[in-house]
Amino acid sequence: MITTEIVLEFFSNFILILGLMFVFLGMLGILRLPDVYNRLHATTKIGTLGAFGVMLSILMKVGFTPIGVKAITVGLFLLLTAPVAAHMIGRAAHRHGVDLCDISVIDEYDKTYK
């Protein structure tokens, strides 16, 4: 019983650090990547997994108590809604005439927006 708690505590801290590291890398991605579309890659993928990791760590720390269940629900909703937000931001940016950065190699998106 005690051993399980120690193992869970260890994994909880490990996932918390991993999640925070991913959040940090997401922020670094926003600063370093060249244009809005590439920055969306950083925020949707890395940011989502980082936040999900923090929520999972809360679940591991407190178990299936009301707080833990709420945390994991928030995490699942993040996974579900982040792609939709990225999709809308990218679409709006392209329709407002935000060009792809100079190193882009191909753009097959129909500019007429029927």
């Binding site: 670094l28 991605g29 579309y37 950083a42 993928k45 890395i46 950065c101 190193i103 882009s104 097959e108």
Partner: peptide, 26 residues
């Protein structure tokens, strides 16, 4: 796939020279 995606983007972000060829594909 999500884990693979995160590791891939993380590697691009922390590499000293960002060497990417982005584009929109139909």
């Amino acid at each position: 796939e999500i884990l693979k995606a995160n590791i891939m983007v993380a590697r691009i972000v922390i590499s000293p020279n960002i060497d990417i060829k982005p584009g929109i594909i139909a």
